[in-house]
Nucleic acid binder design. Structure first.
Length: 257
DNA sequence: ATGCCGTGGAAACCACGA
């Protein structure tokens, strides 16, 4: 079974690229972030025609997350991250598909740091970590995937020294990610490629993709059950080179049945 | 060192992203 995550940066503006990639890659389950579309403007028909069921949590202009599935039933478990009734951002959706619990997340960017946006990021991270502990305790197969907006280590940044004060790489952010992973999660890409430079995002300007000035910020965290089933993982980085593409590339894993 | 590009929404610019 192949599962992918893709920050599309606008699901309607990105529709031709998304459909092309879905056909080429044919993942069984897909998590999307940054829909940038209100609930009623999600391109449900086009996605259905491509062979995918979908659940989504939209929002006008910003954020927005979705889970797609090719054929398999999707049972929605939650469309908010617990812990803050005041949080109005659409950044989390969770479902059960084919016996696997999947949390699809778009963690706040947090810049400029320090400041209220960075505080919001760290609070969101705390809520995620608390919720993740509950998921692990359930002892069921769980995946947490999406745009974490964190480069976990220096290996995940083209020029670490330039990013030390950035919300995506500050010590507090990296510590929060580390604390989450150390609950017992497996970073799928790093398990299979512990020492390789692997990026999932390249800025639109300064020819970042051409220079390979990238960041690894889209991640797959696997619970112990699924860690044992992991057989492959990768980044479809060529998609970042397409016309009218997102600044992120799709990331995927393959699990043994 | 920097939103230099790109998206969406509203208003012919702004907010936001990483």
């Amino acid at each position: 079974m192949k599962i992918a995550t893709y920050n599309v940066n606008g699901v309607n503006g990105r529709l031709p690229v998304l459909l092309r990639w879905l056909e080429e890659s044919a993942p069984d389950i897909v998590c999307l972030q940054e829909l940038k579309a209100p609930q009623e403007k999600f391109p449900e028909k086009a996605i259905e025609d491509a062979g995918y069921h979908a659940i989504w949590h939209g929002q006008k202009s910003w954020n927005g997350v979705a889970i797609l599935s090719k054929g398999l039933d999707i049972t929605e478990k939650s469309r908010v991250l617990p812990g803050d009734p005041e949080d109005s951002h659409s950044r989390y959706i969770e479902a059960a598909v084919n016996g696997i619990h999947i949390g699809c997340l778009y963690l706040p960017n947090g810049n400029p740091a320090p400041g209220p946006k960075f505080d919001y990021k760290l609070r969101w991270f705390e809520r995620l970590t608390r919720h993740a502990a509950g998921l692990l305790a359930s002892d069921s197969p769980v995946i947490l995937t999406g745009d974490f907006n964190v480069m976990p280590t220096e290996l995940d940044v083209y020029k670490p020294e330039r990013w030390v004060d950035d919300a995506l790489f500050r010590p507090e952010t990296r510590a929060a990610f580390k604390e989450l992973v150390e609950q017992g999660w497996t970073d799928a890409i790093r398990k299979l490629y512990p020492d390789e430079k692997i990026y999932t995002f390249w800025d639109y300007f300064r020819n970042a993709y051409g220079r390979d000035a990238g960041l690894r910020i889209d991640h797959f965290l696997l619970s112990p059950h699924l860690d044992k089933r992991l057989i492959a993982a990768g980044v479809d980085r060529h998609v970042r080179g397409w016309e009218k593409t997102s600044d992120h590339a799709p990331v995927w894993i393959e699990l043994a049945d």
